[in-house]
Amino acid sequence: MSQTDRDYSEKRDYIRMRVDADVTLIHAGDLIPAVCIDLSSSGMQVRAARSFQVGDKLNVRIDSEHAALKGLEAETEVVWVTQQDAGSQKLGLTILKMN
């Protein structure tokens, strides 16, 4: 069963951690600054100033502020999109692979 086939309540069973962290989205070689709003073991919610569509594949990089800690890198897929003010979007990303 794919992430999009699960019912809403099952998707909400994952614990979400609010992070409000600056991230970099990488799409077709472009680096796009964004903000990770929350993060779970299976996905994340991100706010970006650039438009994406459901099904787009994005690499997400969250750099660590501490030299001793490695940042997070993940391959993701856009599973939902909500338009925001000033042309920005909130994106639901499912994590396909952690790098």
Rank of each mutant, 00 (worst) to 15 (best):
M1S: 08
M1F: 03
M1K: 02
T4M: 10
T4A: 09
D5C: 01
D5N: 05
D7H: 12
Y8F: 12
S9A: 13
S9M: 09
S9Y: 09
K11S: 06
R12W: 03
D13S: 13
D13I: 06
Y14W: 11
Y14F: 14
Y14D: 14
M17G: 00
M17P: 00
M17S: 04
V19A: 01
V19L: 05
D20L: 10
D20H: 13
D20I: 02
A21Q: 15
A21S: 15
L25P: 11
I26M: 12
I26A: 07
H27R: 07
H27S: 05
A28W: 03
I32S: 02
P33G: 04
A34D: 09
A34S: 06
C36F: 00
C36D: 00
I37C: 06
I37P: 01
I37W: 02
D38E: 13
L39K: 05
L39E: 13
S40A: 08
S41Y: 07
S41L: 12
S41P: 03
M44A: 12
M44G: 06
V46Q: 12
V46C: 13
R47M: 05
R47Y: 01
A49L: 00
A49W: 00
F52N: 03
F52D: 01
V54H: 00
G55R: 01
D56P: 00
D56A: 00
D56K: 00
K57H: 11
L58G: 06
L58E: 10
L58R: 09
N59Y: 06
V60D: 03
V60A: 02
R61H: 14
R61D: 15
D63M: 09
S64F: 03
E65G: 12
H66Y: 08
A68Q: 14
L69P: 01
L69A: 08
L69H: 12
L69Y: 12
L72K: 00
L72F: 10
E73S: 15
E73I: 15
E73W: 15
A74E: 04
A74D: 04
A74G: 14
E75I: 04
E75K: 07
E75W: 01
E75L: 09
E75Y: 02
E77M: 07
V78Q: 03
V78D: 01
W80L: 05
V81H: 04
V81N: 01
T82A: 13
Q83L: 07
Q83Y: 03
G87V: 02
G92R: 05
G92E: 10
G92F: 11
L93D: 13
K97D: 15
K97T: 14
M98Q: 10
